[in-house]
Design a protein around this nucleic acid. Structure first.
Lengths: 232, 232
DNA sequence: GTTATGTTTCGATAATGATCGAACCATTTT
DNA sequence: AAAATGGTTCGATCATTATCGAAACATAAC
C-alpha cells in the first residue's frame, strides 16, 4: 500500500472495499469499541489476518486504536468516517443489490439506529427537522469566509434545559453541529458532538435502549411519548 | 465479481478503490459525459482495460452509458453517486495524505467547483445558507412518515423569477432538493435537480464559466456582483 | 464496396494482496 | 516462577484481478 502519489479516493475506497474489512467497519458502526479478536470473529478470519487488516485501517485513519492492558480496542476514527460509511450504505442499498430481502429487521433499522455515536433513521431526521423549524441554529461566518452551522442562544438554552452542557461542547475541537444524510430516509439528521450528546441523554433518560441486533435502537413506551413531546 | 451475498458496502467501495477506476470517476465528476477512449487516456490504461473497468462501473450502477453512433458516452449515474464521491474526497483530503501541497489550484477549487451537475465550494455553501435564512424551503411529511425537504410557495416564486421552471422540476422523479456536504467547507450545499437548474442558470446568465482545470468554476466580474446581490 | 475509428471480447500473463501456520511478544493470572 | 490469553510479525501460498496483445464487432467516413 503506497499511500503517496495515488489519487486520493483510491486508498480510502480500497480499504473499505475488502469483505473482511468492511465487515469490521460495519460492526464498529454500532458505536462501541471492539477488540481485535472480536473483530476477527466478526469478519470470520484468523487473528493474524485481522491484525493485518486493522493495522491498515488505522494507518488509513479510518480506525483508532487504544491499548487497555493486553486488549487492543478499535473504534471508528471520527464522525467524518462514520458519515462516509453511512453514505456508502446509502448508495449500496438503493440499488438492485436488494436481493437480501428487506425483512422486518431492516424496517426497524430504518426507523431508529445508532450511527457511530448519534441517532439515525426516521427518528433522527424528525429530530433535526424539529430543531430547524424551531430555529435553534444559526449560520455564522467563521475565519476565511467559512461559514459555520452553530447553536444560537435559543438553541443553547433548549439543550441546557435538556441536560446537555453546551458550553463544554462549544469549547471542544470536535464540531458541535454536523449533518449526516440518512441511509433510509435520504434526508439529513444531526451528527457532531451535539448529536452524540443528545443520544447519550436519550440513553440516560431511558428513552431508548440498545437492541441485541447490532445497530438497532428501540424506543421505550415512555421514550416514545417523551420524544413526541420533545419535537412538538 | 460476485455481487450477491457480499456485505453491501464492499462492492461499491472496491469498485472505487482501484486507481484506474477512481481516475475515471474523478474525471467524470466534472459533469460532462466522456467517451471510453477519453477515459482510457485519462486513467492511463489501454482501451481494452478501460472497457473492462467501465463495464464493471456500469453494472455496479456507478456510471451510466449512452450510445451515440460509434461513441459510448459514460457519465456519473446520478447525484447520489456524485455525492458519495465528494464524501470520499472529504475524508481523503482531511488526512495526512496532503503530501500533494495545496497550491493555488486547490485554493480556487475550494471556492467554486462543479460537483457533477451543481455548484459546490464556498459559493455553493453560501448559496444554501442564503436560501435557508430566507425561508424558501419547507419540510413536508411524505408517504410512510418520510419527511421531505421541498420548496415552499415563496421558494417556488423566487426561483421562477430567476428563470427556473420549478413546476417541471416538481413533476420529475429526481428529488428537487438534496444537500451535499462540502469537501472544503464541510457544510452542506444544494444538490438535487434544483441545484443543477441553478448552476445551469448561472451558465446561461454568464455568471460563471468553466475553466480548463477539470472541475474548477470561475465567476465573471459581472457574475460576482450579481451573485452577491442574489444571496443578500 | 473499402478503409478508418471506436469499442468490446477472448486468452494469457503478471502483480497485487488476502490468507493462514508457526513462531514471537506482551500482559495478566495462578 | 509457569501457564494462559490477547496480539503481532514473518514467510509462504493461493486467489483474485488488473493488464495487455490479438482478434472480432460496430459504426462512420470515403
Amino acid at each position: 500500500m503506497d499511500m503517496a502519489h495515488e489519487p486520493d479516493m483510491t486508498l480510502i475506497a480500497s480499504l473499505i472495499g475488502d469483505p473482511s474489512r468492511s465487515m469490521m467497519l460495519s460492526a464498529l458502526m454500532g458505536g462501541e469499541a471492539l477488540t481485535a479478536t472480536e473483530l476477527a470473529n466478526e469478519s470470520g478470519v484468523t487473528k493474524q489476518t485481522a491484525s493485518s487488516h486493522l493495522q491498515k485501517l488505522v494507518s488509513g485513519h479510518l480506525l483508532e486504536m487504544e491499548k487497555q492492558g493486553r486488549h487492543h480496542y478499535y473504534r471508528i476514527a471520527d464522525s467524518e468516517v462514520a458519515y462516509l460509511l453511512e453514505t456508502i450504505m446509502t448508495v449500496s442499498g438503493g440499488l438492485g443489490m436488494k436481493k437480501t430481502k428487506p425483512g422486518p429487521k431492516d424496517e426497524r433499522l430504518r426507523r431508529a439506529r445508532v450511527c457511530y455515536d448519534h441517532l439515525a433513521g426516521e427518528m433522527g431526521v424528525k429530530l433535526l427537522d424539529s430543531f430547524m423549524s424551531k430555529g435553534l441554529f444559526c449560520f455564522s461566518e467563521g475565519q476565511q469566509n467559512q461559514s459555520q452551522f452553530m447553536l444560537n442562544e435559543k438553541g443553547n438554552a433548549v439543550f441546557q434545559d435538556f441536560g446537555i452542557d453546551t458550553d463544554l461542547l462549544n469549547k471542544a475541537k470536535r464540531p458541535v453541529c454536523r449533518t449526516c444524510i440518512d441511509w433510509s430516509v435520504r434526508r439529513p439528521h444531526l451528527a457532531g458532538s451535539l448529536g452524540a450528546a443528545i443520544l447519550n441523554q436519550f440513553y440516560a433518560k431511558n428513552w431508548v435502549i440498545k437492541s441485541e441486533t447490532p445497530r438497532l435502537l428501540l424506543f421505550t413506551p415512555k421514550g416514545e411519548a417523551a420524544f413526541r413531546k420533545f419535537i412538538s
